[in-house]
Design a protein around this nucleic acid. Structure first.
Length: 446
DNA sequence: AATAACAGCTCTTCGGGATT
DNA sequence: AATCCCGAAGAGCTGTTATT
């Protein structure tokens, strides 16, 4: 007998629109004697047909059992991680953005495309995004302007292509938790024009862009200018200047992050190796909103951070950025604006869905956060007991802390096992079914 | 043939988030 | 506040194709 777990997997929910919208459902087949930890399992009560070829059958090994020890669970998870790291996503032949499908490489106009940014506001947004995620490259005498993004954030790349021409290309296929990557790139004359336009509003990369223009116009001075370009990339070469909400929105789309703290509090942060741009953003927000933000140094990482801790200020900043055209982080921004004590857990889950795969397997779920909270509370109780001189109570509480911690570690391993299976199952379905030819037709038709 | 541009890849570095 | 892990992004290389 098999159990069949049918779960709209978190992999599908978080990673792959095509998977989600093709109606594919994460499915893990579990041999008799093993039960799946997830509450989404159901027993079918009948044997699976034996005709299914082994090659097509999803792998069922290393599913967490309810009585697994921590060592057993960790061993299973290590093997699942190793397997996932070798699992190739199907090669990306197209991408979807703004409810339309684009075949890769997407270069509809070739070299005939011209630079025609639609407005100053659009240019300011693009300059902000470029300052965060773009790069300016000279290769064998040709200037390239490029921006890389994961395949599910292609809308920003389309805005660059629409403004400056060039094409959108595959950067790399997906592998395990690594999503497939795309990039927009423009070369030659159009790159020179794009650099000239972007340089007007750029803060971080203005000098690089101006140098790129210079390089492509004066090949005779190539070697010293190339060396200068490399130097600019290694140091804080940002040009201190005023910015706009459009620039802030673009830069935040590239570099910013929205965190839910505690129950219903928010924190916005932007980290950068070099602080000049953060100082510009900080001055702008302070003058626009009458607040007193400051840039702080992260000593351990040698970088600078602009943190906004006050929830009301976070919400005002998010509103301003949304009005200015925030794109990639528009959904998490709207979720954050609606955050309240009543919807805190749903919002936390929804915010996780909108972020990348970093630490996805390790992230705590609602129960996990409650367990962590209980551990901290118990540690504080032990500290207070010690301050009161109640040593026995302190020892009892510390024993309780150890028990809570041990249980927390076990439950985290179980959750990770469940997530690994969902993700592996998702990639297996992609490998077997490929990418749907016409994804999101339902939405395109709307 | 030389040059410019296209397309895709790899290696390195950065930084988000959990833990202590 | 410090530390660690690892996915995302930055940088630049190589091979191919188009243009002059």
């Amino acid at each position: 007998m098999f159990q069949e777990c049918r779960a709209v997997s978190s992999f599908a929910q978080r990673s792959f629109w095509s998977f989600r919208h093709s109606g594919a459902i994460g499915r893990v087949l579990i041999p008799a004697g093993q039960r799946y930890a997830s509450s989404t399992c159901r027993t079918l009560g009948q044997d699976r047909p034996a005709a299914e070829p082994m090659a097509d059958r999803p792998v069922v090994l290393d599913v967490a059992a309810p009585d697994d020890s921590l060592e057993a669970l960790l061993g299973k998870n290590v093997r699942l991680h190793a397997k996932l790291q070798t699992m190739q996503w199907p090669p990306l032949s197209f991408f979807v953005a703004n409810r339309c499908r684009y075949t890769l490489p997407w270069n509809p106009h070739g070299q005939s495309a011209t630079c025609s940014p639609s407005s100053t506001a659009e240019l300011q947004y693009l300059a902000g995004l470029f300052d965060g995620d773009g790069s300016c490259v000279m290769d064998r005498g040709t200037l390239y302007i490029q921006v890389a993004q994961t395949f599910d954030a292609a809308a920003g790349l389309l805005r660059f292509q629409s403004a400056f021409g060039g094409g959108i290309y595959r950067k790399g296929d997906g592998l395990g938790l690594h999503k497939p990557m795309l990039y927009w790139r423009v070369a030659g004359c159009n790159a020179r024009q794009a650099a000239q336009y972007l340089a007007r509003h750029s803060i971080v990369k203005r000098k690089q862009l101006e140098l790129g223009v210079n390089l492509s116009q004066r090949p005779s001075r190539m070697p010293p200018l190339l060396q200068e370009l490399k130097t600019l990339k290694r140091c804080d070469s940002a040009v201190e200047s005023s910015c706009t909400w459009e620039y802030v929105a673009g830069f935040f789309d590239a570099e910013g992050s929205i965190h839910q703290i505690g129950k219903a509090a928010l924190k916005l942060s932007i980290a950068q190796k070099f602080g000049t741009v953060l100082t510009c953003l900080c001055k702008f927000v302070n003058s626009e909103m009458g607040v007193h933000l400051s840039v702080t140094a992260c000593r351990n990482q040698g970088s600078q951070k602009l943190n906004i801790h006050t929830t009301s200020i976070c919400k005002d900043v998010l509103r301003n950025m949304l009005n200015a055209g925030l794109l990639r982080k528009a959904r998490p921004a709207r979720l954050a604006l609606d955050l309240s004590p009543d919807n805190a857990e749903q919002t936390r889950a929804a915010l996780y869905e909108t972020t990348g795969n970093q630490q996805f397997l390790k992230r705590l779920d609602g129960d996990g956060h409650q367990r962590a909270r209980r551990i901290i509370n118990a540690q504080n109780a032990a500290r207070r007991a010690a301050q009161r001189g109640q040593l026995e109570e302190r020892l009892a509480t510390l024993r309780q802390v150890e028990e809570l911690k041990a249980n927390h570690v076990l439950e985290k391993a179980r959750l990770e096992n469940s997530r690994l299976h969902e993700y592996i199952s998702g990639v297996q379905h992609l490998q077997q079914d490929g990418l749907p030819a016409l994804p999101m037709l339902d939405q395109v038709a709307l």
